[in-house]
Every structure is written in C-alpha cells, then in structure tokens.
Computed example of a mutant assay.
Amino acid sequence: MNYFTIFASKNNIDDIEVKISDVFAKGFAIDKNDNEYVIKSKALFKKYNLIIRVMSEDTNPDYFANNIPGMMGYYDNIPFEDDNLKELVLTQISVLNTVIAIEAEKEINEEQIQLFTRLLSSIGGIGFLPEGTLLDDEGIVIVYPDGQSGPSDFRPQACTRKVRGQEVSSEEGEQRKNKTIAYLKEKAIPYTASLPQLPTIEVCQFKTKEDIARRAVALLIVIQFACDVAQGGNVEESRDFFINMLRTYKVEDYLTSNERDFLHTSEPNGQEAINISWQYEAYWTLIWALGFVEKLDFPDEVCDCEYAIQVVSNCETFEQFYLQTTLRSQEEILDEADKIYRYHWACVDSRIQEPPAPAGMNESIIMERRRGLFWMIGHRNEEWDTISMDT
C-alpha cells in the first residue's frame, strides 16, 4: 500500500499547511509548491519521501465532480452488515469537499501510518485505504471493504459551508420559504427554519426555453445509452445509434463533458451508467418545466420512464419537439426548487437521526430532481455535473 487519503468537510483549507507542518515538524524537511508538499525524512537510514496533495472543491472542482459520485456509488454497492452505518457513510461522503492525498515511494509502514493518523485527527474527516477500508478521525476502522463494520462509533461531520450553503435574504425568498414550510407541516415532514432562502427571481440566472429543451433531448438520449450499458447491451451498436440520434436532433453540444466522455469511452463504466440512468428524474423536471408533465408528484416513486421517452420519440426532429413546449413561469420553477431543497434536508436529517426517510421519500429521486431544478434556475451558476447537494 503506497497511498493514504484523507477526505474532509471544511469551510476552507487555509489551516492545513500548519497541520502538515506540525505533524512532520521533527525529522522531516518540507518543500511546498502551491498545494503540493514534498516531505523528506532526515533519518540516516531508511530515508524516504512523501508527496502530499491538498485539493478542495474551490481549487479542483473537476476532481470532486468526477470522483465523489463514484465514491458514493462504490460504498452504496457494498453489502454493509449494518444498514444504518451505510447511511451514515453515504451522508459523510455527500458533504466531502476537501482531500489530502498522501503518496509514498514504497510500501507504507506502521510508523508512517501513525503520522498519517495524527494528520487525520488534526484535520478531521475520514481516512481511505486503497482496498476500500474507511477510518474515522481517530484512525479506527468504520467499515471494511466487504461491508463488515469496524469498532468505530462513527458519526458524520460537515462544515457550515456544506450544511448551510450561501446565506441570502429577501422578502421574496422569505415568502417562498415560508410557503414551502407550511406545505411541509401539512405533510408532517420535518424541516429546519435555519435552512437558507434560495435567491430571488431577479438574482437567479434562469435557462432559456431552448436551452432546457435541447438539454432535455440530449440527456434523454445519453440516458438510453447508459441503460443499454447497464443492461449489458452491445456497446458499439448502441453508441453508434445514439450518436446518430444526437446528430439527428442537433443536440450534441448540449451533452456535459462527463456525458461526452462516457459516450465515447471504449469501455463505459457500469456504475457510471447506473448513475446516469437515475437522471431520468432530473430529465423529468425538465419536461415538467416544458409543459409535458402536469405536476411534479411527491418523490416517493420513480417517474414514468415510458412516457418520458415518448415525449421525444414521438417527434422526428428537435423543431417538432420544441413547437410542443410551453415553458412554465420562473416563479413556478423556483417554488419547486425551494420545495426539493427542503425535502432534501429532511432526507439527510433522517439519515443522521437514523429513522427512515419521512413520508416514504426516495432521496435518490430528490437528488436528481434537485439537479434539474437547480440547473434551470442557475443556482450559483453551477454546471449540470457539479450541482452541489449541500443541505
């Protein structure tokens, strides 16, 4: 084992340099270049070097966009012997925004593990070993790769930046928030008044009807390819067919970079295919906004995938599809975004507190609907693949 990785949820990474210096103060020389540190032992015998790379969502957004969903999927597929522990681990992963990656020249020894554990304890978060074992901030095993529970009494940790999001305040936002809370009360769904308002209509950067329509068609097509991959279909035939569909509808430019890579890679990843397939729920919000779906039902059952396909497949061209669209008002879309935001908080809170999701809600449905709605309102101007899921 030559790698040890620390994942954490932090408001910023300003203090990490000091923590690294403290842990390696005796017996080491430290050379720093931006957020990379070369640690050189001063021992007469058994000298060694370490490389420590520090990344955050701010400094390396692509890393988190590409790796955190995969990490979530990896542990979601592990057969945990304790389902509650699995939910706690997934909760922790969902709020990670900092990584300290340690690379050793040779096999890591016990002395080095103790140093890395000291760094883990000072930073907080979880330790990740290459074979999949997770450690808590004291270096105690949370879970083994086969799903067996470790002795750790693990509880997730999240920084205020991930928990509270960016604070905004307006009369419009307060009215929308209060309307959603009144609805949640009627449904007996937990809520917190401290969850921030969403931005006002004026502040939001709403996507145009054409952008939403083209994104919807492109997304549906790549979802169909992902479904073929997940079901073990002929990848080459499927790829050729769906690339041709993208060109027929003239929506190739509306794929995300991740989707384009997935579509063109020679051996598409099965877990990524499953993750993209779940985006039927995000697509559902797009065709709702375009007037094809009467209302967004309560998020306890998956959408009607057959109907979702027919909305586009009944049209031979994008222009034919576009002529059938009627964009909902910005207020309607923002109201639904606020509702899904507070649904999501209730689901995350229930995972931490241990009971099942309130009112039978499905958090996977909620997360994908949130992706679609937050993208449409232009929340924080985030890209489709990097919509933050903080609550």
Rank of each mutant, 00 (worst) to 15 (best):
M71S: 10
M71H: 00
M71R: 04
M72Y: 15
M72S: 12
G73W: 06
Y74K: 12
Y74R: 09
Y75M: 09
D76V: 05
N77M: 11
I78H: 02
P79F: 13
E81Y: 13
E81M: 14
D82Y: 13
D82I: 14
D83A: 15
D83G: 10
D83C: 07
D83F: 15
N84T: 15
N84C: 11
K86P: 11
K86Y: 07
E87P: 00
L88N: 08
L90H: 05
L90F: 01
Q92Y: 08
Q92L: 03
I93R: 06
I93S: 06
I93M: 07
S94I: 08
V95C: 11
V95G: 09
V95T: 14
L96D: 08
N97Q: 09
T98W: 04
T98I: 12
I102Y: 06
I102A: 02
A104I: 00
E105H: 01
E105G: 02
E105R: 00
E107S: 09
N109D: 15
E110Y: 08
I113L: 11
Q114I: 10
L115C: 01
F116G: 12
F116D: 08
T117C: 04
T117R: 06
R118M: 10
L119D: 05
S122H: 08
I123D: 02
G124W: 06
G125L: 04
G125F: 03
G125C: 03
I126E: 04
L129G: 01
P130F: 00
E131P: 00
L135R: 03
D137F: 02
I140N: 06
I140M: 12
V141T: 15
V141D: 12
P145Q: 06
P145H: 08
S149V: 10
S149K: 13
G150V: 05
G150L: 03
P151W: 05
S152C: 09
S152K: 02
D153T: 14
D153N: 14
F154A: 08
P156K: 09
P156Q: 10
Q157L: 12
C159H: 03
Q166D: 11
E167V: 14
